[in-house]
Design a protein around this nucleic acid. Structure first.
Lengths: 184, 184
DNA sequence: ACAGGCATGTAAATAGTTACATGATTCG
DNA sequence: CGAATCATGTAACTATTTACATGCCTGT
């Protein structure tokens, strides 16, 4: 049996917490893992079928009125597969940040224009921070048995805070060096 | 004319600094942008041909002995294209971190095993930090006219430092809560 | 002589996004 | 009634990695 995609484990992880439709999995991804592991419908629905075919999850019809709906539950095999994945050391760590890339090549523009990139980066990370804070506030209203999603959420809050702060300090630095240049 | 891939701008950015072979571009990517924008030979060589075909760079033969070699230089059009891209607000910001994902779902394992993931994450980020420090030390030996690559490198150093620190604090937190559980 | 680095490239596979199609239900 | 949300899915496209092939040059 060929090995599963990481997105398959995202599904197993959520479905383990209780029966879920594809739509619900997507919604959960969008408010949590997407900050470090995104997934689209184009991945989720085919993956649900594959996982179902290999017996790691089982689907059952669970319509809302006459709107058809399939919810999936994890099997014993599915739990084992999830755990065995969790026990392996993490491999993938990738960042794709167009902002850092533009800053890296910003020498090709006048200093003032380089600052615009940095300001935009700060605004984006700041918005992300607020988004995460809103998600956290919401979470804290319910009770929490599983501490890990919150732990990961808090890493996001710290990270975005650090990033915004770094942008501010770097903006100031570039502004200073631009002044220096003109006075020399 | 259809728009260029981000990887095309990586090439334009490096080639703007002076004539480069595909091999040299790849080597530069691997020691700098790959931390926030990776690129493989499978992207670089075809992209060099495309950029050459659209007149944004020009290639010329520049063999080393009888080993054939093509170096590319940026054209005026290329510089303009690069600048116009730099002036647009950055879009892509993506992270794919299997470690955070495993931590997110770590409730499916005994607490002690969840810690293993965190320890591995810390080791990886710590190694990355040292790698970046080594690159910085090397850079500081030469003289620097363009301050931006160093600025971006320093963001990497701060980020990895923060990440290692966060891992340590989180390890301690989980260890504490595991003790609590047993004593209650 | 051999290893390692320089140098160029491509084919195949995998991953992932985007856009579209379809239709039901719920809430204001 | 209309908008938003629930719900499922696929086709086409784009991006990207991996693995392979080829061969020269330099230093030990």
């Amino acid at each position: 049996m060929e090995q599963l995609s990481t997105t398959a484990y995202v599904i197993l992880g959520f479905v383990r917490k209780g029966p879920k439709s594809g739509y619900e999995v997507k919604a959960l991804v969008d408010e949590s893992t997407r900050f470090f592991w995104a997934a689209s419908y184009g991945q989720i629905y085919p993956e649900l079928k594959r996982l179902s075919a290999t017996g790691l999850i089982v689907g059952s019809d669970s319509p809302t009125g006459s709107r058809k709906r399939t919810v999936y539950e994890i099997t014993a095999d599915g739990v084992e597969e999830l755990q065995s994945w969790l026990r392996q050391r993490p491999e993938t760590f990738e960042v794709r940040d167009e902002g850092l890339l533009k800053l890296f090549f910003a020498d090709a523009l006048p200093r003032e224009e380089a600052l615009a990139t940095l300001r935009e980066m700060r605004a984006r990370r700041s918005a992300a921070h607020e988004q995460l804070q809103a998600i956290k506030d919401l979470k804290l209203k319910g009770e929490i048995e599983d501490p890990f999603p919150l732990i990961v959420l808090e890493s996001g809050l710290e990270f975005t805070k650090w990033f915004v702060d770094w942008c501010e300090r770097t903006e100031a630095r570039i502004l200073d060096s631009a002044l220096e240049e003109r006075s020399s």
